[in-house]
Design a binder for these strands. Sequence first.
DNA 1: TAGCGTACCTAGAACGTCTAGGCAACTACT
DNA 2: AGTAGTTGCCTAGACGTTCTAGGTACGCTA
Lengths: 111, 111
Amino acid sequence: MTTTAPNALVQGTLDLVILKTLSWGPRHGYAIARWIESTTDDALRIEEGSLYPALYRMQHRRWIAAEWGESHEGRRIKLYSLTPKGRTELRAQTARWGDCVVAMAKVLQSA
Amino acid sequence: MTTTAPNALVQGTLDLVILKTLSWGPRHGYAIARWIESTTDDALRIEEGSLYPALYRMQHRRWIAAEWGESHEGRRIKLYSLTPKGRTELRAQTARWGDCVVAMAKVLQSA
DNA sequence: TAGCGTACCTAGAACGTCTAGGCAACTACT
DNA sequence: AGTAGTTGCCTAGACGTTCTAGGTACGCTA
């Protein structure tokens, strides 16, 4: 990770990608970031300074729940999982994102 | 404007839609907002408290230029137009938005 | 034992947007 | 003549999210 490629992520979408990541099952913070980066071929880069505050926020809103655990290598990890409320939020934010994309397309493809 | 429909706009896209609007020719602030709202069937709502600071910012960055004029009804208006730098920025931000949409699609459609 | 990767976290700044006002002039209705 | 609605511009301050730039600790490998 030596390159400084511009991050394509637009403010407000971090919560959505985290929710989506967790919809495949519980993961810990660091793994969430790595999964998103590899899934998007590094187009979305998740800074830790954004990630952990976001996780804290989402936990506070009861979208996700945390639990301390241990990795295969014996490291302590904090496993996050989606709550029912988080699942609802995921649906809502996915729809909202779709609306945004549609609206932007109307503007950008206008003639 | 009595309804309180949720705004589909995601932070960071306001500049892009303004640039795009001005690519069709000079317009004044109020007209920019109305054009975007009507083009997107009110999906994107442009608050004046966001619009004018954005216009100020973009003017400061030399993406747009302003000129005082007069409307048909004799009202004073501030006409904004795209500068060459703004045109470059429009291309860049359009590409960036495309990247973001692609990356988000990878995450949201992942299996 | 030094270095790298994993894994967590925080404080403070930066940035963009929204809330909630204010001002002025024109238009239309009463 | 008064007043309500619309057009049109603007600002201060709050707010929320993200980034910068740190810090800590442990496991693995050379």
